[in-house]
């Protein structure tokens, strides 16, 4: 493999890891049949995005952007915007996770299964009766 590519990937290790995690989460959400694992995959995917954003906002050697000791100079702090985005994103992903878990519980109570393919077949049969 190209040496410079590996160097670049290692240099941006947070971004590399977050994109790999995003891929893992995306694949689980898309392909796994178990609903709980799908939800886990969704959370991995979302968290990977937050890792990406947080690592983009971090500047080495700077402090959390909360003024405690009177230093108002911008260069002393990291970029607060990505942290704000991550917070908003967490709220969104918590609510979608809650909704999906609620739906999963409903479906499990009805069909006693967590396998999406099986649920779809059972639901189809149920309608034809």
């Amino acid at each position: 493999m190209d040496v410079s590519l590996v160097e670049h990937l290692l240099l941006n290790i947070e971004e590399t890891v977050s994109i790999v995690l995003f891929g893992i989460g995306f694949t689980i959400l898309l392909l796994h049949r178990n609903l709980i694992k799908k939800i886990m995959g969704m959370n991995i995917m979302d968290t990977a995005t937050y890792l990406f954003l947080a690592s983009k906002g971090y500047i080495t050697g700077r402090a959390v952007p909360i003024v405690v000791d009177g230093i108002q100079d911008v260069s002393a702090y990291i970029n607060p915007v990505p942290s704000g985005l991550v917070l908003t994103g967490i709220v969104v992903s918590v609510s979608t996770t809650a909704l999906m878990l609620a739906l999963t519980i409903r479906l499990y109570e009805r069909y006693h299964s967590l396998d999406l393919d099986e649920i779809l077949i059972l639901a189809k049969e149920e309608e034809q009766i």
């Binding site: 739906l103 999963t104 479906l107 999406l116 649920i119 309608e127």
Partner: peptide, 8 residues
Amino acid sequence: GRSMSAAI
């Protein structure tokens, strides 16, 4: 049943 499986 089908509505809920469609929803998920």
